[in-house]
Design a protein around this nucleic acid. Structure first.
Lengths: 205, 205
DNA sequence: GGCTGTAAGCGTACGTTGTAAACCTACGTG
DNA sequence: CACGTAGGTTTACAACGTACGCTTACAGCC
């Protein structure tokens, strides 16, 4: 019988995401999100316990965009896993500033569960089970989240590389040389290359 | 001719680390660190531009503890890399709460440079060069930082696993089963297992 | 259609944070 | 001993998350 709710969790998450995309993580403030919704700051608290829950909503909204429909089953299972991993990277890349929120809230995310379930299915199809399968899933997730983080927090490829290339080459000969090679490797190639290493380790005899 | 400085960057970082170890990241406050040094909050700013620089000092102090002396050269190069990676994990594990600061400040850390140089040397010894070597270094760092993060932010192994095991097994059959296997895998085995995958990918034909 | 109870939404306020500015003060050098 | 520099303190402010209490709009009943 009371007044009906005017917001959905999804609408709130969208508003918060709009703020973050526009003003970065530093601009993400309860007041700013409320303003984006044309509300007072305190009205937000009718929908959310605290800032942390709002962050969870955001992460869930971003990761919820992952397409977990199984890739073409005619592809080798390793390639299908590659696709699933790339899909997760893609949705986060659409909102780079949330990259650092993901690891914090991942373990409460339903989207991550669905994604993990899909990956586990493919790992199983690849003949993995038991503890080896646990290690594989966890390894993929670690690499994925680590790579996303590094990518959006001061990339090796990119402007940082320039500084690296000017390192005193007597004390850091390898780094100086590597920085030169790094210029040839774009972010996608870098990510896919690392992922391929992991997956090759999975299938090697 | 003026009054001498009474603090070293290292002493400041130690105080901050003491605060973090005692009260967690949330307790890490300019005022708290200053109090730890028996100073007023503003006195800190004679030594540090802002909070961010203090965070950098902390990360540098933690990562500075890495032992980068080359492991026994009689070991295969893959094992020597394993040792270097584990050493990085070890120093962060000693101060779990700083885990989330590391990725943010890594690219300005001299300690990371030294570590990277050592790893690159071993990769080179393993016959890697050019873009393959770039991808390898970056892959190792991504996995390492991702794994550290996951480990200290809601582990798969650990209490989280219990919740996972009780998932509706009709919708998450693999996850439910995997959660049971996960109980057998300790954090060290999990980390080392994932790392081994990556390195095997590096040496596979 | 008016009345009413519930929950939506708002205004105000408090404690805490990072840090700017102005001030006082201890010390090495002349 | 005086002086100037830089160390340290005090005070202050804007912005943050959020507790509390009030007002107000609506769905269901008479």
């Amino acid at each position: 019988m009371p007044r009906p709710r005017s917001l959905t969790p999804d609408r709130i998450a969208s508003a918060a995401l709009a703020v973050i995309d526009r003003d970065g993580l530093a601009g993400f403030t309860m007041r700013a999100v409320a303003a984006e919704l044309s509300m007072s700051a305190m009205a937000l608290y009718r929908y959310v316990d605290d800032r942390e829950e709002l962050e969870r909503l955001i992460v869930e909204r971003v990761l919820g965009g992952i397409d977990v429909t199984p890739p073409d089953p005619r592809l080798p299972w390793v390639e299908r896993i590659t696709i699933l991993v790339q899909r997760m990277r893609t949705v986060v890349a659409a909102h780079p500033a949330v990259a650092s929120l993901v690891p914090v809230h991942r373990h409460r995310s339903h989207a991550v569960l669905r994604w993990s379930e899909a990956v586990l299915g493919l790992l199983t199809e690849g003949g993995l089970a038991g503890e080896r399968r646990v290690v594989a899933l966890r390894g993929l997730l670690s690499y994925l989240l680590g790579a996303i983080q590094l990518e959006h927090l001061g990339p090796l490829t990119g402007p940082g590389t320039a500084a690296l290339a000017e390192l005193p080459s007597d004390r850091f000969p390898y780094l100086a040389e590597t920085a030169r090679s790094a210029r040839q490797v774009g972010p996608d190639a870098e990510f896919d290359g690392g992922l391929a290493l992991l997956l090759r380790g999975l299938t090697a005899p």
